[in-house]
Each structure stands twice: as structure tokens, then as C-alpha cells.
């Protein structure tokens, strides 16, 4: 068994199991905790509050004009690299074949050269994100191991992917193996760190929208 076989064989299986079990456990752990009973008389009805909660899952994606002047850099960086990641992960032909083999589906790909350009841009944005985290007083003060390791895991995946596409650094097969291994690492780390925000973002926004609208307050 060579590196690629190992990376996309037993390592991927183990990583995937950890990924699924970890995510499920992290969500179940939250759900198993005590649920607060809200007993105060609502200002808005339950359906209205529920609808606002649902709306909040989307509307929070765009910051209120009041805040945008102060947060525009963070917002722009955040949006840009997330879009870059989606394009590179989901619209690159080899990725579509890889993911498609698990779910039995195919979708159109972007030309490899276009995806490569996006990968370079995304890596550049990632460097900017790290520089900002290290240089911005608030982010530097706030950052912990999770912030840096989560950054490292995703950046590693991007860099090894770009190296594999460009055939640089080592024989293609070795780089491909490392790229898949870095994907395995991402799956393993995912439930333990802040990458979990992808699963939390919509429930948190929905709950906040519900709770605040119930009071008639802005959300």
C-alpha cells in the first residue's frame, strides 16, 4: 500500500468516522444540556418570532450599515476566502470525481486553470488572514491554539493541492498522497475546533432571531 492508497483508504475511512462521530457528539452534547424555559410574556407571537429566526439565518450574513465601516476589512476577507474555498473544493474536476464517487453524483467543473487562479488567490487571502490575526490588536489578543491550528489545517490543504496541480515540490504521487492526508487531517480536526462553526452558524442565528423578535427587539 503506497501513500496515496493509505491516505484515501484506511486513513480516509478513519478520519471520516471521527468526523461524523465527532460532529454528531458535539451537537448531541449541546442538545442534551438543560433547555431554558422562556416564561415571560412575548411581545411578538411565536410564528412571527420563528419566521424572524429563519430570516436571521440569512440576514445576519450581511452586516448592518451601522457596523460595516468598522468591520469592512474582516468582512471582505472572510467572504473572499470562503468563496475561494468553495470554488476550489467544489468546482475542481478531480474533487468532483472524488466527492462524486461517495455520493454518486457529478456536477459541472470550472477549467483547471481557472480553479488554479482561485487557489492562488485563496492562499494569498489566507496569508492575509493570518497576518491580520497576528497584527490586529483585538485578534492577536483573542487568538488561541484553535485559531492558528484551524488556519494551518485548511492552509495545508490548499498549498498541497496547489503543489499537486502544479507538479512542484515532490513527485506528483507523493504530493497527492500528502494532499489527501491533509484532507484526512482536516476531517479529524473538524469536530474539535472552530471549523464546527459551519454547523453552528445557522442554529445560533435562528435562535437569536427568535429570542430577540419574541421581545420585539432588533436582531
Amino acid at each position: 500500500m503506497d501513500l496515496v492508497d493509505f491516505a484515501r483508504g484506511p486513513a480516509l475511512k478513519a478520519a471520516f468516522i471521527i468526523f461524523i462521530l465527532g460532529i454528531v457528539w458535539r451537537i448531541v452534547n449541546v442538545l442534551l444540556l438543560r433547555h431554558k424555559r422562556i416564561l415571560s410574556e412575548p411581545r411578538r407571537s411565536v410564528p412571527v418570532a420563528l419566521l424572524a429566526g429563519l430570516k436571521g439565518t440569512g440576514s445576519r450574513s450581511w452586516p448592518h450599515p451601522e457596523f460595516i465601516k468598522r468591520t469592512v476589512t474582516g468582512e471582505a476577507l472572510g467572504y473572499s476566502y470562503h468563496i475561494g474555498l468553495f470554488i476550489v473544493i467544489l468546482l475542481f474536476a478531480p474533487h468532483i470525481i472524488f466527492f462524486g464517487s461517495f455520493i454518486g453524483a457529478r456536477w459541472p467543473a470550472l477549467p483547471n486553470s481557472v480553479v488554479t487562479i482561485f487557489a492562488v488567490i485563496t492562499i494569498t487571502l489566507f496569508v492575509a488572514v493570518l497576518a491580520r490575526r497576528l497584527g490586529h490588536p483585538v485578534l492577536r489578543h483573542l487568538s488561541n491554539f484553535d485559531d492558528f491550528f484551524s488556519w494551518f489545517v485548511v492552509a495545508l490543504l490548499l498549498v498541497t493541492g496547489l503543489m499537486a496541480t502544479a507538479h512542484v515540490g515532490a513527485p506528483y504521487h507523493t504530493i497527492l498522497g500528502l494532499h489527501i492526508l491533509s484532507f484526512d487531517l482536516l476531517l479529524i480536526w473538524y469536530p474539535f475546533g472552530k471549523l464546527m462553526h459551519a454547523f453552528y452558524i445557522f442554529p445560533t442565528r435562528a435562535v437569536d432571531g427568535y429570542v430577540m423578535t419574541r421581545k420585539g427587539a432588533p436582531s
Binding site: 452534547n29 449541546v30 438543560r34 433547555h35
Partner: peptide
């Protein structure tokens, strides 16, 4: 004070600093 709601909130922070 730890309950499902506070756990969700504590777990969800991405340290964006905004």
C-alpha cells in the same frame, strides 16, 4: 448557567473579533 443555549453560544464563536 450552562444549558443548551449558552453552550451553543459559547461553542459557536469563531474569534472574529468584530
Amino acid at each position: 448557567e450552562i444549558g443548551a443555549l449558552s453552550a451553543l453560544r459559547l461553542d459557536a464563536c469563531v474569534h472574529c473579533g468584530m
